[in-house]
């Protein structure tokens, strides 16, 4: 299937391994990525906090660019993008006057957003479009004996009504289902649906890092081998900042955190170096024995 692909900012910034691993995994799943290389940041809730219409205009621009492609739908790889864009889309779709006002701004760029765009995170696309049975049929390296803790990221599980999470689409269970489909063991620890703390890292560093440390510690106590997250911002606090979080918490952590496409890629038979595992601050090789040699090679 062809999708209008919005990689987000951080996957091309401080978590380049996410963008790379998505590009490596997509062909194995029959996904053709039409990258929206002219689209700009979703605002991550911060621009909306400054000026709602500014954030809505930026995202309407992205939606309009997606609608110009041949993609069946728009796909993102970031929980924060999913949540921030869904919120903007709700406002744009709710009110024709408001939409017309935003489209007036976009007219200078020859763009217009029309109601009806579907925007799904890679996680939702895997479950709802590709299907877990079809995914399971492609597994070349079952993740047996790997104990994986899901870490969803706030923006992809709340608010439930805005994200259309209901009995028919229990999207807050998809990461659990996915780990099972790849033959891994789900570790249900206290932090599964909690906040990594990243949004306030520059405002209240202690509160922010304490949140990250708490969830990492809970996952360790629940005997997880690693976490997996569909959110690169969570990854920044959980992986990049992990040494600082450990220092603040006063306990050793050393919990590897994988991006969603990395976990899928491993199960589909890709090598860790193809998935950028060597770029992590906490090396997955610490717990994933069968990948250690390749991760070391990639980092060299």
């Amino acid at each position: 299937m062809k999708v209008a692909y919005w990689p987000g900012c951080v996957s091309r910034g401080f978590t380049p391994e996410l963008h790379g691993s998505m590009a490596a995994v997509a062909p194995l799943l029959g996904i053709e990525l039409i990258e929206l290389d002219r689209a700009a940041c979703c605002g991550a809730g911060v621009i909306a906090e400054h000026n709602q219409e500014l954030a809505d205009t930026l995202n309407a621009r992205t939606f309009a660019l997606a609608q110009q492609t041949e993609g069946e739908l728009m796909m993102n790889i970031c929980s924060t993008c999913q949540g921030a864009q869904t919120e903007c889309q709700a406002r744009l779709d709710a009110n024709a006057d408001y939409r017309a006002q935003v489209n007036d701004s976009l007219a200078s760029q020859g763009l217009s957003y029309e109601v009806g765009l579907t925007n799904k995170n890679f996680l939702w696309l895997l479950v709802e479009e590709i299907g877990l049975d079809a995914l399971q049929a492609k597994v070349r390296r079952p993740l047996r004996n790997l104990r994986v803790g899901p870490f969803y990221g706030c923006y992809i599980v709340r608010p439930m009504d805005q994200l259309a999470i209901d009995d028919e689409h229990p999207r807050h269970r998809y990461l659990h289902w996915l780990i099972e489909a790849l033959h891994g063991t789900v570790i249900d620890y206290a932090g599964v649906y909690k906040c990594c703390g990243f949004p306030i890292i520059t405002m209240n560093r202690d509160t922010s890092l304490k949140q990250a440390a708490r969830h990492l510690g809970d996952a360790i106590d629940a005997q997880a081998d690693c976490l997996v997250t569909p959110c690169p911002l969570c990854h920044l606090n959980l992986d990049l900042q992990q040494p600082l979080a450990a220092k603040l918490a006063g306990r050793p952590l050393g919990m590897p955190v994988l991006h969603l496409p990395q976990l899928v890629g491993l199960a589909l038979g890709l090598q860790p170096h193809q998935l950028g595992m060597g770029k992590h601050i906490v090396r997955p090789s610490a717990v994933i024995d069968w990948s250690s040699a390749v991760v070391a090679a990639s980092a060299a």
Partner: peptide
């Protein structure tokens, strides 16, 4: 500025 924008209270 200590609110971490997690949407928990909204739900």
């Amino acid at each position: 500025y200590d609110c971490t924008h997690c949407w928990m209270c909204i739900d």
